[in-house]
């Protein structure tokens, strides 16, 4: 009984870490540019598929493969910035138009990945071993644990960059008011570019690590985007940490729902639940706290 519960919680923690990381990256971009990036899940998809490509097709060792993957993902982020965000912002497009632009970016990334890898499910090799590992009465593996570790690491890194460096201060300033920040000598466009690259990096690594557990296929991006967004709005889109916490909560709820109810209705009921929360608290559960902190 207790064992089942702890297994479910562990599974929830693993998946929740991924949703949290995507929520975190969505919120970083939103924080600096007020844009919801629909292509966020596609970065995770690229991470998983590149891991497959470089480790299986090109048979590179994993550190090299990871570097190559990061290069690809960051290039995709730059393309998104130069090809979609900047032209639309310079033409004074409405926020919703920019959002559709990022959706077009997601469609292009998905379409290109489809051309390269086809629709089949790919086996993404694990970076760390999938050998069972005993912790007390729990049996897990290091790949699963590494996801939770990465989640904590990126959370700390983001916190450090945002709240303990001068650069982070200018990122936050841009988020509050881009025009004023510009007048203060902060190059807003650079900041937005950095946030695109950094969040693509986080999502790419998350995708690479979740690949062996979920299985990689080119269509996985959309669902990850939606879940990452749900995580972000559940916690509060304004703060990367609230978004990450929302991700953990969603992962847990999903695991518990699938373990004690049916897995068929786990997703729908969680979406409905989050929408309910959104109606009561439109800025997310932790949203107000962050608003005060600003």
């Amino acid at each position: 009984m207790l064992i089942k519960l702890s297994y479910l919680l562990l599974a929830g923690l693993t998946n929740g870490s991924v949703y949290g990381l995507i929520g975190l990256s969505l919120s970083i971009i939103y924080g600096s540019s007020r844009v919801i990036n629909f292509a966020q899940g596609e970065f995770a998809m690229l991470g998983a598929m590149c891991a497959f490509f470089f480790m299986v097709s090109a048979s590179l060792p994993w550190p090299l493969a990871m570097l190559a993957m990061i290069v690809v993902v960051v290039l995709a982020a730059l393309a998104l910035d130069y090809g979609i965000y900047r032209p639309l912002v310079r033409r004074r497009a409405a926020p919703l138009t920019i959002m559709i632009g990022t959706l077009a970016g997601a469609i292009i990334l998905y379409g290109l990945a489809f051309v390269v890898w086809g629709p089949e499910q790919k086996f993404v090799p694990p970076v760390l071993s999938l050998e069972p590992l005993r912790i007390g009465f729990l049996i897990t593996n290091s790949q699963q644990l590494s996801l939770i570790g990465l989640f904590i690491f990126f959370l700390m890194l983001t916190w450090y960059i945002l709240y303990r460096t001068r650069f982070g201060l200018s990122v936050r300033a841009t988020g509050v008011n881009p025009r004023t920040a510009l007048l203060m000598g902060i190059r807003s466009e650079r900041i937005v570019q950095f946030s695109f690259m950094f969040s693509a990096f986080i999502s790419g690594v998350a995708g690479m690590m979740i690949g062996p557990l979920l299985g990689g296929n080119v269509g996985m991006g959309l669902l990850l985007t939606v879940k990452g967004f749900m995580a972000a709005i559940f916690g509060g889109l304004g703060s990367p940490f609230a978004a990450a916490a929302g991700g953990l909560a969603i992962g847990m709820m999903e695991a518990l729902m699938a373990g004690y109810g049916t897995s068929l209705y786990a997703e729908p009921s969680i979406f409905v639940f989050i929408l309910m929360v959104l109606i009561v608290r439109p800025y997310g559960l932790l949203g107000d706290y962050e608003a005060e902190r600003r």
């Binding site: 032209p87 639309l88 138009t97 077009a104 970016g105 292009i108 990334l109 379409g111």
Partner: peptide
């Protein structure tokens, strides 16, 4: 067929930017 999705995505983008 293979390029369909990528081409559609590119079309959406080009029209959004140049011919709203």
């Amino acid at each position: 067929g293979r390029f369909e999705t990528a081409i559609y995505g590119a079309c959406i983008l080009v029209f959004l930017i140049f011919l709203p």
